[in-house]
């Protein structure tokens, strides 16, 4: 079984986010980069499926050369090949991303293509569905469990009122959520292998989509000053006073 995972290089922001002077992007001069947790689980799942079925686990990204770092991270987790669709734009719009992935997939027909439910930075929550539509593949989103059964795949999701199980013929597409599994940490051996592995680069013709970022903004925050109730165990009576005021002491 061949599985391919689409991952995006995103800034690993902490508790404060700085924007560039023109406010069109996050100032990443002092930041590291990562892939989102949903995608990390997708990579883990792909590696497990490949191990179980004797197939392959590939990773693909659309982005600039720096995004090879994230492909190598996925390879250090056990992915066995990587493709980068070259795009100088760090945060392409979802139409462009989907078109780039669709073009790349025409040359690599995996049995299962995995996406994250939403990218960690832009969060458009649409690239996987656009690709599935373009390729005319079955797709399920919000996936928290994947089972393989011959030429079919079962996909388990949390719905607002319970759990749903979907079944799709292969080849299929799924957008997955963190919680699907507990991703492994890369081993030293895995890191060394990934360092030496090659990333295949392709450069299809891409036109830009029609959702264009003008500026990023911080959300207005209206919080009063914090009331410090005290230090250590001595603060307990004050804490219980607060709980009592809120009607929580029964």
């Amino acid at each position: 079984m061949d599985v391919l995972v689409c991952v995006k290089r995103v800034p690993a922001v902490g508790s404060e986010i700085l924007l560039t002077a023109d406010a069109t992007a996050i100032d990443t001069r002092h930041l590291g980069f990562t892939i989102g947790p949903h995608e990390e689980c997708a990579v883990e799942e792909a590696v497990r499926i490949a191990e179980r079925t004797g197939g392959s686990a590939g990773v693909l990204t659309v982005g600039p050369p720096e995004a090879d770092e994230q492909l190598r991270y996925a390879m250090s987790m056990g992915a066995d090949h990587a493709v980068r669709v070259d795009d100088p734009v760090a945060d392409p719009d979802p139409e462009t991303t989907a078109a780039a992935i669709t073009a790349a997939l025409r040359g690599l027909p995996p049995d299962v293509v995995l996406f994250g439910e939403a990218s960690a930075d832009a969060g458009h929550a649409q690239v996987g569905f656009r690709v599935a539509c373009a390729l005319r593949r079955p797709v399920v989103g919000g996936v928290k469990g994947i089972g393989l059964d011959g030429d079919r795949v079962t996909l388990r999701c949390d719905a607002p009122d319970g759990v749903e199980v979907h079944e799709a013929p292969l080849p299929a597409v799924a957008a997955v959520l963190e919680g699907l599994n507990l991703p492994r940490y890369p081993t030293i051996k895995g890191r060394l292998r990934a360092k030496k592995a090659t990333v295949r680069v392709i450069a299809p013709d891409l036109s830009t989509g029609r959702l264009r970022t003008l500026r990023l903004r911080h959300r207005p925050e209206a919080r009063a000053e914090t009331v410090v109730l005290g230090r250590g165990a001595a603060a307990a009576p004050a804490v219980v006073d607060v709980l009592a005021d809120l009607g929580m002491v029964r």
Binding site: I17, D121, R210, R212, T213, L214, L216, R219
Partner: peptide
């Protein structure tokens, strides 16, 4: 964006 970590003004054309 990112569940509300940031707001984005964008052109929808």
């Amino acid at each position: 964006r990112s569940g509300g970590i940031l707001l984005e003004d964008a052109v929808l054309d």
